[in-house]
Write a protein that binds this DNA or RNA. Structure first.
Lengths: 185, 185, 185, 185
DNA sequence: AATGAATGAGCCTTCATTCAT
DNA sequence: GATGAATGAAGGCTCATTCAT
């Protein structure tokens, strides 16, 4: 039987993930591991005990981000299936979209997230398909798109959010309007 | 009177810019200068003769990209002011708009393009304002947006194009529809 | 409370300082860091862990050298204030005063030691002033000079020692005789 | 029979020597050849046509400096053999001692001038021997020194001059007094 | 388990020297 | 002969990763 991990080890792992998340989100994936260790108040070696590689750490963070998104989508759908997609899209721009700015950076640095995390990939796409489908069922979303298209839109939104120079209210409106069925405008 | 640069130097400079463009576009700004030198068939020193810094090389490439976009916008406006914006948006997704994918990478690696290239920044924004305004004058573009909003959209489009997993026809349609005036849908 | 540094780190730091001292003294400050690392049996990175910059390493060495000189002056003054200056001057030529030969090299390579190490500068000048003043009080040193003049003399002596082709007995005698008060010759 | 060198070639050679002299004297021997070329208004290749190596250029400069010193010594001896040495020593500190600061730098960078320029070495030592001997004959210089000792003194003076922080009047007095015969003080 | 020192490959950049124009 | 572009070998420094403590 697997030994229970020590309490402090668990605490360290969480702390590292949180700190790494913040640091990477604010300074990009280029930050040295040592800086994260310092911020987290642990030794560099400790990080490597929990994550075999810097890339593994990054993937862990992205995984958490995706999981959060999936949960969030589920919540939104439970409350208001017809508007869930619009709330989701707006939310991406408002809050922790930084999570996934990381994803973009990672991607552009040659890491193929979908290949590294096939299960999350599937789960995420499933959630997105759902999000779109329920909106279509409610008649609030145009019928000629699916989850993949939404994925692309999300990627775009995250890029906007990362390089934003000003308010993104108008771009958001453009996207939302574009997502509605022809009759609804 | 300043002597004109030597023919071979000019050729090399062009070759370096082209190769660097391709390499950076496909592998991000992290690629070592040596790799570009190798690809271009020149010594690393030669690159540094033409560009004092790796960053300078990157900026030169981005500058060229922006200039091309500006020219392109002008051409589109001359031919068909009402649809120019839509052709532009579609074109970004089609052709190797990786020019600016670079810009995004650069930005995320800490270089502030707008600050480094203030004149291009202005010129580009001017062109975008124009693109939007003429569309609005023709009645083909919604009236509550301006060039800044288009800039954000472009950033998003480029991100989509860079991380594309599948066709982007639907996302493009979404954006274009969203850009049209309410009545036009 | 700050943890005390690890034993091996301390050992390495000392070893690096010693090796660097010798190597720089014998080959000038131009030697690559890698060579010092090699000589010291450590990786280049280890040197940079202890000294953030090559220049910092050089300054650390010079600092140690100056400190040694200051201590030495104090000792000489305690034993025989009247002759301390002469013993000091002679000692510079005898022992491996290459400490400061380094200083000269450094200076000629654009590093302003006095500006980088203002406290050592002051302390050293203070010691030199003392050395001269006590000799003057004892009547063994001419009265129209001060510590600054001695500093210049030392610089000269070190240069002689570094470029020496033959015995320096006579030059030393010249200097010592020149330092005595008129009556004493 | 050897072709006459072209007039412009001669002019270039002189110009390079002069510029290189000034630049090296003021910025040390570390300055890139290209900078000298630029200052001299010639291409880097031109320097290499005249001097096979950077070191060769440095040696040429030093050679000229030594030759100037030799001539100067001869002149001083013709005018006032008894005081020539003192005028020489004082002159080193006043004027173009920078010539030879170079020599010191060169030496510390591993070039053995005496070995590279054996004839100048001999000639210079001969001149120094003369300078001392004639002073001794006139009774103005102590009898227990020779040209080699003076060489060391010169090396020291040049070092002083290069690192001077303040007036060198006192150090000069010290040296001169030390050079006089016991009775003369 | 944690620590943080050590490692060493790799990157950007410089510059003496060569060579095509 | 002159030019200045091209070369490529180093050098300083960083940082992911390993390992002794």
């Amino acid at each position: 039987m697997k030994k229970q991990p020590r309490a402090d080890a668990v605490r360290n792992r969480r702390r590292i993930l949180q700190v790494a998340h913040d640091v990477f989100a604010s300074q990009g994936p280029g930050v040295p591991i040592d800086r994260i260790a310092e911020q987290a108040g642990v030794g560099a070696g400790t990080i490597y005990r929990h994550f075999p590689t810097k890339e593994a750490l990054l993937l862990a963070i992205v995984t958490e981000g995706i999981d959060r998104l999936i949960v969030w989508i589920r919540e939104l759908l439970e409350i208001d299936p017809g508007n869930a997609l619009y709330q989701f899209v707006a939310g991406i721009l408002e809050r922790g979209a930084a999570d996934q700015g990381l994803a973009a950076d990672l991607a552009s640095s040659g890491v193929d997230i979908d290949a590294e995390l096939p299960d999350r990939h599937r789960a995420f796409h499933h959630a997105l398909d759902n999000l779109v489908a329920q909106g279509q069922r409610a008649g609030t979303v145009r019928s000629d798109i699916d989850g993949s298209d939404l994925k692309a839109i999300i990627v775009g939104l995250q890029a906007m959010q990362q390089h934003r120079e000003a308010h993104l209210d108008a771009p958001l409106k453009i996207i939302c309007d574009g997502l509605r069925p022809p009759s609804a405008k």
